[in-house]
């Protein structure tokens, strides 16, 4: 569970951000950086993997400055994956809390 969780955390956060609204890379990183510590360079390989797994799709949209931006949008299977990751996350947090609360206070 633990490795799977570690691996999934960043992915889960990105999916959650995109669940609220479509976003472009810099935007996603800024939102992530406010909560999770990460190397910004990780974003593109991660987005590519999500694309490979058909969890997100991309489209180009005009921007105020410079060339059009690449936006990422959650797909239906992305939404399902997010729900799965979330329930796994809450389960894990609950288990950890139980231990911390009852035995290690």
């Amino acid at each position: 569970m633990s490795t799977q969780l570690k691996k999934g955390t960043l992915e889960m956060c990105v999916l959650a951000i995109l669940d609220h609204a479509d976003g472009y890379a810099y935007d996603i990183v800024s939102k992530l950086a406010s909560g999770v510590e990460m190397s910004e360079g990780t974003i593109y390989p991660l987005m590519r993997r999500l694309q490979n797994d058909a969890l997100v799709t991309t489209y180009l949209a005009e921007s105020e400055q410079g060339p059009p931006r690449k936006y990422y949008r959650l797909t239906e299977s992305g939404r399902k994956e997010l729900a799965k990751l979330k329930s796994g996350w809450w389960e894990f947090v609950e288990d950890v809390n139980k231990i911390l609360g009852d035995d290690y206070e």
Binding site: Y24, A25, Y26, S39, E40, G41, T42, P67
Partner: peptide, 22 residues
């Protein structure tokens, strides 16, 4: 390219953005 231009627009320097990317 897009990442750098967005970063510059938010007031960071090229060096800072490159450092952040790793």
């Amino acid at each position: 390219e897009e990442y750098f231009s967005d970063g510059l627009a938010s007031g960071r320097t090229e060096e800072e953005i490159a450092k952040g990317l790793g």
